[in-house]
Structure formats: structure tokens, C-alpha cells
Design a protein around this nucleic acid. Structure first.
Lengths: 163, 163
DNA sequence: CAAGGTTTGCAACATTATAACATTTGCAGG
DNA sequence: CCTGCAAATGTTATAATGTTGCAAACCTTG
């Protein structure tokens, strides 16, 4: 099924990661933002994991590779990466995931599989529009949208059957 | 402007609270669930506040009225109330708010004012449908939707101007 | 009342996030 | 070059949020 979204198919994830890093470097250069080694490494760690990583997961990985890091190190890097739209925070998981639409203006919609933990980020203008319409019907001025859908991804639905 | 949603207008909030409590009692009775004094008091405290309350805010109020409570007391009550759809957890705030559509099956959409902290819960089937369509286009099976919109409520938009 | 499940009390602990302040680094202007 | 400022990082401590495990109290229901 080639129409299935990327994270749900086998693929060369290393290529994903290096593509994301290259893009991040480009975006930061364009905006005169400094993608320092720590920030870049945090971004890479987050991309390497196929599931969202908690801040303390990132911290543990940094520590295990000899980086002398404390919580603020990680949170600051994450703040930076979020600011430039390179990672997203998943509020319902207290975790972070690489942005798959970096650079584009968008409100992400996250499909979070409760079984395998994978997250797929969508950019659906129809959804955004519906939300904005509902908000403006109440004269509410939206600034940030958090939209996270928990459920079962295609692969894990299949697994349910032969258990 | 009488079309403006209730939380944004002055109103007798005590009446809201007692209405919500009465409804909660009815729902619990119907489902053979025990709305014990602690649970009821927690629900009441949450409703009395016009902003979402953190678990530790609830705990502090309980403590201040002589209730010998610890964190688990509050979290257990909140779990119960969530389970019966009487309160919602706002993931982006780590806080809880009374459900204004208790008893009805729904996925809430929350409009959260960043200035005054008020939260309006909407039930918009058009939004839900758009989300479900986007999910099923990816063969994803949704189970729970977290939808929280941060921004400015009508009142606080007005306040912006004469500052 | 006796048995069994549900609810609560309680202590300790785990996880997530921030504050405050010192130090280092990168870089623009003299 | 160097100096001085802003940005970034290091470091320590602490705050805020949430959980585990076990024992005691409490309803129900036979």
C-alpha cells in the first residue's frame, strides 16, 4: 500500500534524519539563528527516535554520550527548536517530536498510536478551517492550536486481530 | 450582545455550580457510581473557579478547609470525575475544568483565553467530523481527541485596545 | 455479621519543568 | 587586536505535577 503515510512504512530512517538536519541548518541560517552543536544534537536525537522523546530521555542520551548536561540544557535547546518550528511538543505526552513540515506555517495535527507510540503529523487545512470557524463564531481570536488524536495506527489495528 | 457565550457574560455563577452538581448527582446515580463527599467537593471546587484548576490548587483548597488530603486524594477524585465525563483535563495547562456538556457523548473543543484564563468548551460536530475524516484518510482509528485553542476571548480583545 | 469489593489515608517517591546566578563564547565596533 | 556586549551554556537548587504501594476504613450484599 504505497499510499500509506511514511512513518507507517519501512524506510531508511537515517536519510529522514539527515534530511531534517540539513533543512534545519538551512532554516536557521536563513533566520540568523544559531544551530549550535548542542541544539543540533538534541534535534538529531529527537529525529532518530521514531517515538516522541521526553526531555529527560534526551537528557539521558546526552549524558550517556559524555555530554555534561543538566535539565536546563535540554529545555533550552528544546525551546529554541520549538521557536524555529523544528520540533513540536506533544502536550498529552509531555514529549517532543521532530516537525515534519519545518519552515511552513502550519498548525499540526498529531495522530498518536497508543500501541506503538508512533506519531504522524498532518497539515489539514480543512481541519484548521473548521476550528477557526468555530472559534470565530464565539468571537474568539485563536493564536495556537493543540490538536492531538490518540488511537490506533494502521499497523497496530492489524496486530489487534491475530492476538 | 446576548449571543455571546455564557462564560463571557456576567451571570449567577453559584447557580451554574449547583446546576452542575445536581446534574452530576443524577448522572452518577444513573450509572451506579458513587459521588462521595470528597469527589463531590472536588467537583464543586472546580466549578466554583472560573478558570481551570490544577490538582494542587484543588489540594490547597481542600487542605485550607481542614480536609486531610494528600495528592492521591485529589488525583483519584479527578480520575473518577473524568471517567464519568464530569470534568475535563486541559493538557496544555495541566489543569481541570468542569464539563459543560456532562452526560452527552462528545469531544470537547476548548477555547482558552491567555489573558483572563477563562475556558469555553464547545461541541462542534463539524470540527469533529473534519478531524475524523483526516484521520481515516490515514487509516488511523481515533479514540480520543485533544483539541485546545489558546488565544484571546472577546472581552480581552477589547481590553487590548484601551491600554 | 462476615466476606469482598470499593474508597480513602498516608508516606514515600517519580517525573517534568523552572529559577537564579556564574561562566563562557561569538562577534561587532573601536 | 581587544574590549565589551549579547547570546549561549554550566551549575545548583528547587518548584510543580503526578504515581506507587500498602494499610485502614467503608459500604454493600448474602
Amino acid at each position: 500500500m504505497s499510499s500509506r503515510a511514511l512513518p507507517y512504512r519501512p524506510h531508511n530512517h537515517d536519510a529522514c534524519v539527515s534530511h531534517a538536519l540539513a533543512e534545519a541548518r538551512a532554516i536557521c541560517q536563513q533566520q540568523n539563528a544559531r544551530l549550535t552543536p548542542t541544539r543540533e544534537r538534541v534535534l538529531e536525537l529527537i529525529w532518530q527516535s521514531h517515538k516522541p522523546l521526553g526531555a529527560y530521555d534526551v537528557l539521558a542520551k546526552l549524558t550517556s554520550e559524555g555530554h555534561n548536561a543538566a535539565p536546563p540544557t535540554v529545555y533550552r535547546a528544546l525551546d529554541f527548536l520549538q521557536q524555529y518550528g523544528l520540533v513540536h511538543r506533544i502536550a498529552s505526552l509531555n514529549a517532543f517530536t521532530g516537525c515534519t513540515h519545518a519552515g511552513k506555517h502550519h498548525t499540526g495535527m498529531f495522530l498518536i498510536c497508543r500501541a506503538c507510540g508512533n506519531v504522524l503529523e498532518l497539515m489539514e487545512s480543512s481541519v484548521t478551517t473548521a476550528i477557526e470557524n468555530a472559534a470565530s463564531a464565539e468571537a474568539f481570536q485563536p493564536e495556537a492550536i493543540t490538536l492531538e488524536v490518540a488511537g490506533l495506527c494502521p499497523g497496530c489495528q492489524a496486530d489487534q486481530h491475530h492476538e
